[in-house]
Amino acid sequence: MTAPLVIIGTGLAGYNLAREFRKHDSETPLLLITADDGRSYSKPMLSTGFAMGKDADALGMLSAGQMAIQLNAEIRTHTRVTRLDPDNRRIWIGNEPVCYRDLVLAWGAQPVRVPLAGDAADAVFPINDLLDYGRFREAAKGKRRVLIFGAGLIGCEFANDLLQGGYAVELVAPDAQVMPTLLPPAAATAVRRGLESLGARFHFGVVAERLERTASGLQARLSDGQCLECDLVVSAVGLRPRTELAEAAGLEVGRGIVVDRFLRTSAEHVYALGDCAEVGGLNLLYVMPLMSGVRALSRTLSGTAVSVSYGPMPVTVKTPVCPLVVSPPAAGSEGSWDIEGDGNDVTALFRSADGRLLGYALTGTAVQRRLALNKELPPLLAELPQALALTPST
């Protein structure tokens, strides 16, 4: 019996890879394994559900059974892989070995946990998948006050969504502005003011240290001694690529699972894709680079080696109260920000000393400039020279 292509994960990376692979190969057995219920959904929609009035069932698109039919695949749900065994070309699910032709690790990233004292430390909701969203949505029934840990991209998106859904929202963050790793201060101020216009309250330069249950809900004590009353807490302090099983199996791991430009790990016949992968030193937790990887890897797995390249990859942030598109300069880039505009309409351009555009942040009506500016940006990962691009896959 032919060993299957095995994909671990049924999020955007896993399911989109399976769809693309089936366009090139309709015969190879395909097995997808997931720790959740395997419903197909769009993860970016998780931070739009309250404004749209949609629960988890409404955000789900197809069941695991429907996806299995569509993909001509076997899908094993609520199943956790416990060990990778690349030397013998198999994985383990408890005491059950599963052999593979090729293995793709598409299991994403996990929420960073906030260390908290107090008797309600377990009452913090990360929202990283559809099941998380369903649990939070159920807990939010009849509640009004939401405290968000973190004011980065995800924290601001959830704040906008919850505010539009009728909730009172406060955000706690250790930095002095929103999205400090993505935005210059002028653009960050525009986003903050937009959210404040909806009623958001920000607490910068502090962290939550304790979370206690009270007669009326929850109380969070901050590092400056301030106490905030709330009914629900959302953790949006960041994501960390899942690397533990890969590292235990001897695969090279950095920020994520290290792969080459063909998305090959350091073990033969093992690939990594999406949020868990580190490609060319980059670990990008966004949809555009994920889909670039999907298109390339689907061809490689079907017999035609295709390397990954990233052009400009701007990120559209879902804060409709203050539209935002950002293409941050690469880490270590030398240059400075030029700021134009004021209020909610800010154009921030990061240029090198010789005037080359290396990144931008656009807010409000300035987002209309994104297409023109994208033409000036350098690629994040340039295409490989032809000789290297034609290197066959293992």
Rank of each mutant, 00 (worst) to 15 (best):
A151N: 07
V270T: 11
G311H: 02
L232K: 00
G118N: 06
P323M: 00
E244C: 00
E247C: 01
D55N: 13
N344A: 15
K54N: 10
M291Q: 14
R295H: 14
H203L: 03
R261M: 11
L71H: 06
D224K: 03
P115L: 00
A51W: 09
L358P: 03
S352L: 08
L263P: 11
L232A: 01
R369E: 15
R264Q: 15
D342I: 06
Y360A: 01
G9T: 06
L131P: 13
G238C: 07
D57M: 05
L162G: 04
G254A: 05
L32A: 01
V172G: 04
P180N: 03
A187F: 05
A330V: 10
A387H: 14
M291W: 14
V294N: 11
E209C: 00
A382N: 04
D132A: 03
S307C: 05
T265C: 09
E268S: 14
P29D: 09
P44D: 01
I75D: 12
R145K: 14
I33Q: 02
Q66V: 09
G65R: 07
L17I: 12
V172L: 03
E278C: 03
K43L: 14
A18S: 10
R192M: 12
S26Q: 15
P29Q: 03
C156R: 02
V206P: 05
V98Q: 10
F350H: 08
M288I: 11
A387Y: 11
V6T: 15
L84H: 12
A176C: 08
A139Q: 11
V124I: 11
V259S: 00
L381S: 03
D37F: 02
T28R: 15
R201H: 15
E247I: 00
S216I: 10
I127D: 08
V326Y: 11
L282E: 13
T300C: 07
G155Q: 09
F21Y: 15
L198Q: 15
I257D: 09
M291E: 13
V325R: 07
G332H: 04
M179F: 09
V191S: 00
Q110H: 01
Y41G: 00
R22C: 12
V346K: 04
R39I: 04
M313P: 00
L218S: 06
G256A: 06
L380C: 08
L130Y: 07
W337R: 04
L290W: 07
G303C: 11
I148P: 09
D224S: 08
T34P: 14
A331D: 14
S352G: 13
I154F: 05
A109C: 05
A106K: 02
P385V: 01
F136I: 04
I7G: 06
A361S: 13
G256M: 07
T265A: 07
R22L: 12
E196A: 08
A187W: 03
E268N: 09
K54V: 04
I8P: 12
S307Q: 06
G11H: 05
L245P: 13
Q368I: 13
G11E: 13
S333C: 09
A236W: 11
K54I: 01
L228H: 06
D345R: 02
L228A: 01
P180F: 12
L349V: 07
N344I: 10
V237L: 06
V146T: 13
G250I: 08
A353Q: 15
S235A: 12
L285S: 05
D87N: 09
G281V: 08
L373H: 11
L30F: 12
L273T: 06
